[in-house]
Design a protein around this nucleic acid. Structure first.
Lengths: 347, 347
DNA sequence: GCGTTTGCCCAAAGCGCTTTGGACTTGGGG
DNA sequence: CCCCAAGTCCAAAGCGCTTTGGGCAAACGC
């Protein structure tokens, strides 16, 4: 059933039916009611493509997900982010279209998305330091919002980010204040912007507390369980192992924990750990006293907010860019305690 | 730049340009070359919606992802599945559109997808026992392929599935043959079809080996780390704890492992464990000798194959339905060993 | 009572593409 | 030399919708 058929059924013109359906004022209440009921009865919905052609809007937004080259890894936060974004987009009548791409294809994909008019805007995922995509999209003329930020880019753009520097600053301070002097950092890949910022927060805390920066206590890579395990194992095997870890994600933390358990150490007593927690739906670190002390920030919520930002941007492309900086909560769980050399002293 | 402008630039009709671009024979080689070069130079791409309107094809396929009601959980396999499917769809020129929905909205969403013509077909994710979606889509007339199967549905439909029954049958047999007599099952929600089948495989193995089925050694829920931990903790705290676990996913397994470690038990010696391993990119269970003995089947590969099935189905909607049943590999890692009461005996 | 709003509705032009049904050259066969 | 078949190309219709620019009554102001 299409508009033409529906209007014939009703004995009205397409114009009137279209207007009735879209809430225009120049149609009487009685007619509108009749139209609405007929549409319902015939299960009529306007054809997306025809509507898009006529209005010039795709009512769709694009997510271009870059896979990491090394392991073709899909970022595990992706599902939850998109679930959050999907809620908001759906409420506003937007569809989400997805493209998973290998690094290097980005320019081509964004250009194509714009030229074919298949989306009204895009979310930039996984920004790196000096990420060229901002300039690219600005040039191409596709509205966008970045989930994260881009160190090295200085003109204004729209973004939403967790204050990663602050989060890791606070996490590291927290451990230092418990007496830990050898604090390791198990970070995400440091060419990713978020990991770079976390690193800076970590370093700043060390400086503040007068602790030396030991590069051999810092590791960065894709945040897999295996990476967490290997990095932590190597560090714990040293003659001067760290007594605390700051870890970039819960998945990574599971690996670190495995390394700790394997050496017969007890988490929260022999070794302390603060992790970042994206509140992924399948990896809850919940409860009254969470298992892990964590800097917590819901990536799903970030998805919702990012979507709103993008919708507004599409509606008013000439409005000034907006930014949103979210502060992570530092929630204390049972994975942290005073440094071993102080135990007893403090008790 | 659109077709009209491009054809004017070239001094050709839209017809000819369109034909040149789409590889029709009634255009000379010289002209085609000229058109192709001009298109390239002007960065021309046909407008998706206009093309769709004209051809009646959306060149898009839909993924409707049901969130679990309880925790609004996003299945962690989602990212990898879609990465695999995305590869294949992209090769064939299909876009993927995504809808995350709450349970109960399904009928409405599928109907709308069809009526608005926004997709040419859909992938059914997360089928449950007696899932009504198959009948629904058949009625609505939208081509589909199920990732999984539907126990209780008897007319033919297209699906791709791992042989979950066989996988868990073999896993459980394997443990029984190592002398384990109390084997626990930490399963996904058993109204999900895959979990139901795994349960059946598990039970069959017990029967084969003459072991009793102890319902208190079976737990099923959403496969989170927390669930694995809680279920395993409770079982291990009993006076007659299980000596082996069959676990439905690696994430769940991480929780089970935490419970095992916490009780000071050693995995592979005091307690054995076989897990299902979807080969998620961020949760590798790799190496020469994997950490966990596992029934292994790449969900990413499943995505690729499912996509191919759907593309073929859309191309030939009247061809008989096709099915693909994948066999999981049973890979032996270091999480399994002879039952404790036999150790020494066997050595 | 007249002209002018106002309210309600419609015909038709596009949106950018594909595709049908020719039209106009050539070249070759009879 | 004529005719027909290829080989090229084009004008125009149509996909299903929105939107412009009226038209026609009824209601209004004076």
């Amino acid at each position: 059933m299409n508009l033409k058929q529906l209007s014939q059924t009703l004995g009205l013109s397409q114009t009137t039916v279209s207007r009735a359906l879209n809430g225009y004022p120049e149609v009487s209440a009685a007619t509108r009611k009749r139209v609405l009921e007929a549409a319902q009865a015939h299960n009529y919905r306007p054809n997306t493509r025809a509507k898009g052609l006529a209005t010039g809007q795709a009512m769709a937004i694009g997510h271009v997900i870059p896979l990491s080259l090394k392991h073709e890894m899909v970022n595990p936060i992706f599902g939850d982010f998109i679930a959050g974004a999907g809620e908001t987009f759906a409420e506003s009548g937007y569809e989400m279209v997805l493209a998973m791409i290998n690094p290097g294809q980005e320019a081509e994909v964004y250009r194509s998305l714009k030229a074919r008019g298949s989306v009204d805007g895009v979310v930039i995922h996984g920004p790196r330091i000096d990420d060229p995509r901002i300039d690219l999209l600005e040039e191409v003329g596709l509205p966008f919002v970045v989930h994260g930020r881009v160190t090295g880019h200085h003109r204004p753009y729209s973004w939403l980010d967790v204050d990663n520097r602050s989060a890791f600053l606070r996490a590291t301070r927290f451990l230092a204040d418990l007496g830990h002097r050898r604090i390791a950092l198990i970070n995400g890949q440091e060419d990713m912007d978020f990991a770079h910022r976390r690193r800076r927060g970590y370093e700043q805390a060390l400086v503040e507390r007068g602790l030396p920066l030991d590069p051999s206590l810092c590791a960065d890579d894709e945040m897999t369980e295996a990476f967490g395990y290997e990095a932590a194992s190597a560090m714990l095997a040293r003659s001067d192992p760290p007594t605390a870890f700051v870890v970039a994600s819960l998945i990574c933390t599971l690996g670190v924990r495995r390394a700790i358990d394997e050496r017969g150490l007890t988490l929260g007593r022999d070794v302390s750990l603060v992790t970042h927690d994206d509140e992924l739906s399948y990896l809850r670190n919940g409860g009254e006293v969470p298992i892990y002390t964590a800097t917590r920030s819901s990536v799903r919520d970030a998805g919702r907010r990012t979507a709103r930002l993008l919708i507004d941007r599409i509606a008013t492309p000439d409005a000034p860019h907006r930014q949103e900086l979210l502060e992570a909560q530092l929630v204390v769980g049972s994975s942290t305690g005073p440094a071993p050399h102080l135990q007893g002293t403090l008790a």
